[in-house]
Amino acid sequence: MNRITEQESKYNDIDKMSVMEILKGINAEDKLVPLAVEKALPQIEKLASAIAERMIAGGRLFYIGAGTSGRLGVVDASECPPTFGVTFDRVVGIIAGGDTAIRKAVEFAEDDAAQAWIDLQEYNINEKDSLVGLAASGTTPYVIGGLNTARKHGVLTGCVICNHGGPIVAESDFPVEVVVGPEFLTGSTRMKSGTAQKLVLNMLSTTVMIRLGRVKGNKMVDMQLTNHKLVDRGTQMVMDELNIDHEHAADLLNKYGSVRKAVEASKG
């Protein structure tokens, strides 16, 4: 397989560049990422729609990946509860090598094709759920093995990769291929490829949560009020929605614990 993510950088002698030359080169490559994501929108639409349908019926969303890809999945999953008020087990990110690998690389964890399904079984993954494999190269054995076995058990499968085709696509009902080209630093997929995956994950989880009714208008009405900034934001939302003063809105938010509940109780 011709892995675009491993192709040599278009930039030579970057170790001899000035700081500004390095920054301009990276920035020039980064500008290509959203254009590549735009080309993949039809694929992203199909995956997001399929996941939303299953989650509306009570299913869960799982991400699996190794290295940078795995970390991005963990980040996206961990941000869903505070942003949308869902329980921590509705969107789950799993990284090869376990939580230790979030901070420190675990040698050869990505090469174990059987381990992903073992990790997923801890959550009793089943045919109601969706599994998205994250791998810039599209060739990571951990992810391929997880998707393969999950698919055999009736789990909906998808992937987000930065190559054309490959074995992960063959195991995915809804593949997403965002081809960003060679990295500024040859093979460093934490750069453009990681940015592309981050953008797609933002799109997936946000779209799915909107379809689940976790957004009202353009507001995060179910967000968790875990710091003063979010409490202030929530208070302003209640003020705007009910046309009341700050003190009254703050009292309602404190009493009901969320913007949605405060507004519904007052309008009910």
Rank of each mutant, 00 (worst) to 15 (best):
K128E: 14
K128D: 15
A40P: 08
P34H: 01
T140V: 03
I95P: 05
G98R: 02
V132F: 09
D89I: 12
P81N: 06
A66P: 08
V92M: 03
S137Y: 01
S78C: 11
E38D: 14
L35Q: 13
A105C: 05
E110I: 02
V86L: 14
I95C: 08
R90P: 07
L47A: 10
E53K: 14
L32Y: 00
E29W: 00
A36C: 13
R90N: 10
S130R: 05
V92W: 00
C80R: 00
S78E: 09
P81L: 04
R54H: 12
A50E: 15
D76F: 00
E110V: 02
L47N: 10
E122N: 14
F88D: 15
R71H: 11
I95Y: 03
G97D: 10
T87N: 13
L61C: 10
F84L: 12
I26F: 12
Q115L: 11
A52W: 03
A101T: 07
G67Y: 03
A57D: 15
E29S: 13
S49Q: 15
P141D: 06
Y63D: 13
I26Y: 08
A109C: 11
A52T: 10
S49T: 15
E79P: 09
T68Q: 08
G73I: 05
G65V: 02
L120I: 09
V33E: 09
T87G: 12
A50C: 11
N27V: 04
Q43R: 08
A57M: 12
V33G: 07
I44C: 13
F62N: 08
G85S: 06
G58F: 05
E107P: 07
E107Q: 11
K128C: 12
G65T: 04
L131Q: 09
V37I: 15
V86H: 02
A40E: 04
A40R: 01
D99N: 12
A136E: 00
P141T: 01
I26G: 04
T87P: 06
I64V: 13
V74F: 03
V92Y: 04
F62H: 04
T139M: 02
I125L: 07
A48V: 15
I51W: 05
G97N: 07
G98A: 09
A109P: 06
S69W: 01
Q121E: 15
V74M: 10
T140W: 00
I95K: 00
A36I: 09
Q121H: 03
E122V: 06
L47D: 11
T100R: 12
D112N: 13
G65P: 06
D111A: 06
S130I: 07
R54P: 11
E122H: 13
P141F: 01
G25I: 03
G58H: 03
R90Y: 06
A135I: 03
G65F: 00
V92G: 04
A96G: 07
V106H: 03
A48R: 05
L35G: 13
D111Q: 04
G67W: 00
V86T: 15
T87I: 07
K46S: 15
K46P: 11
L35E: 15
K46M: 14
R54Q: 14
G138L: 05
L41V: 14
I102Q: 05
A52H: 06
E110R: 00
A105R: 03
Y63W: 08
G70L: 08
Q121V: 04
